[in-house]
C-alpha cells in the first residue's frame, strides 16, 4: 500500500541522477525487489505510471528483478534460497534460520538512458 510513496522516491532519485547525464533521456529504471520488501510489483507499476506522468520520466519503464529470500543455514554452513517467504527453514536439511541474507532489497540498481 506504500507503493505510491516508493514511486515518488523513485522519480526523485531518477531525476537527481539525471543531473549527472543532462543530455540523456531515461528509457528504463532497473530495480531489485526482494520477496520480503513488502512491495507488490503490480501496485508499484500502477503507481509508477501515475506518479511519473508529466515528469521527464513519463514513458520510462520499470524493469524489475525479483529477489528470492536467501538464508544462511547454520547446519549446512552455507546460503540457501527459499522457495517462498513463509517458512524460514533450510530447504535441504530443514534447520531453522532467522539469518536472512537476501530478500529485503528495494534498490534502484541502474538507469537505462539514451
Amino acid at each position: 500500500m506504500h507503493e505510491l510513496s516508493v514511486a515518488h522516491s523513485l522519480v526523485e532519485m531518477a531525476l537527481d541522477e539525471m543531473e549527472r547525464v543532462p543530455e540523456s533521456r531515461i528509457i528504463a529504471l532497473h530495480l531489485r525487489i526482494g520477496a520480503l520488501s513488502g512491495l507488490v510489483t503490480d501496485a508499484l507499476l500502477f503507481a509508477w505510471d501515475v506518479v511519473s506522468e508529466g515528469t521527464k520520466l513519463q514513458g520510462a519503464a520499470l524493469k524489475i528483478e525479483d529477489v528470492p529470500v536467501v538464508i544462511f543455514c547454520p547446519v549446512c554452513q552455507q546460503e540457501q534460497t527459499l522457495p517462498g517467504h513463509q517458512i524460514f527453514r533450510c530447504p535441504r536439511c530443514n534447520a531453522k534460520s532467522a539469518d536472512i541474507r537476501r530478500g529485503r532489497e528495494l534498490e534502484l540498481v541502474a538507469l537505462e538512458v539514451s
Partner: peptide, 16 residues
C-alpha cells in the same frame, strides 16, 4: 544514441 546503463545502486528508501 545507443542505450547505455548508468549504475545507481541505492536503496529506494535511502532518505528514510
Amino acid at each position: 544514441m545507443e542505450p547505455r546503463i548508468v549504475q545507481v545502486q541505492e536503496n529506494v528508501l535511502r532518505k528514510n
